[in-house]
Design a protein around this nucleic acid. Sequence first.
DNA 1: CTCAATAGTTACCGGAGGTAAGTGGCCACA
DNA 2: TGTGGCCACTTACCTCCGGTAACTATTGAG
Lengths: 136, 136
Amino acid sequence: MCLTNREMSPVEYEHTCMIRGDGGRALRAILDQICNKWTLLVVATLDQGVLRFTDLHHQIPGISQRMLTLTLRNLERDGLITRTVHAEVPPRVEYALTPTGKSLIPPALALAGWAIEHAPGIEASREAYAVYRQNG
Amino acid sequence: MCLTNREMSPVEYEHTCMIRGDGGRALRAILDQICNKWTLLVVATLDQGVLRFTDLHHQIPGISQRMLTLTLRNLERDGLITRTVHAEVPPRVEYALTPTGKSLIPPALALAGWAIEHAPGIEASREAYAVYRQNG
DNA sequence: CTCAATAGTTACCGGAGGTAAGTGGCCACA
DNA sequence: TGTGGCCACTTACCTCCGGTAACTATTGAG
């Protein structure tokens, strides 16, 4: 199961294999879908409850209609959201999180919390690096 | 601070604003760097301890030398890893996590745990969706 | 007959990510 | 003396995904 190249302690095993699994392949396949540009933001926004296409479009700054459509399709395909079409005029389509989708919120918050907590430090490091590069 | 379009309860505020923050912009800027194709895997691999370029190249399946170089450069720029060059022949370059880099491990594990836990369900949903599409 | 509202789709383009081959310094071997 | 290997990268080149802007379909209202 654990395809690393050397023996490791149980603690190492837990750490490395949790995140690398079968050499990281299976995990990467999922993360490629979850960690793209808009997925986490859409899921987090839907945590409010049922929302329509235009609601999402207004509440997520910067997303285009196309990318919102694609993101919602992928989330629906992966079983993280439901898509309910009401045969009305004008049309009404409602999106909501499934239990699986909801379960993504806590780990997403953990990552978001980390990002917000360390954003200033990272920004500072980035600027220092730029100066360092400039001055040789 | 919270740029959503409607009033919300404290619980909603905590959830939505943690992840969306200033409309999601700051968070997105960081996530764009962290959530790319290889960063999490490199960080997780470096959790083992100090590693050399070729160690990483061997332990991370599928990464090319180019992408490993680029990923390491970005991580160094963001202050998540240190890069130590030993003036020897043949050259020896050692990479290690900084405290900031180490602090990324727990939230990364949270997300990785979620991905591994829900991978079968997502895979099943994906196949069911493909069948559904085929049959109209 | 035109316009507005909703939920998309289409055309097109640039950049992230991928492959393969080259670089530079030094040593071992023939 | 020159050939090849080790190590840590670069460089050149190409493909395909993600992004923007504009267009579409349907129907009721005026």
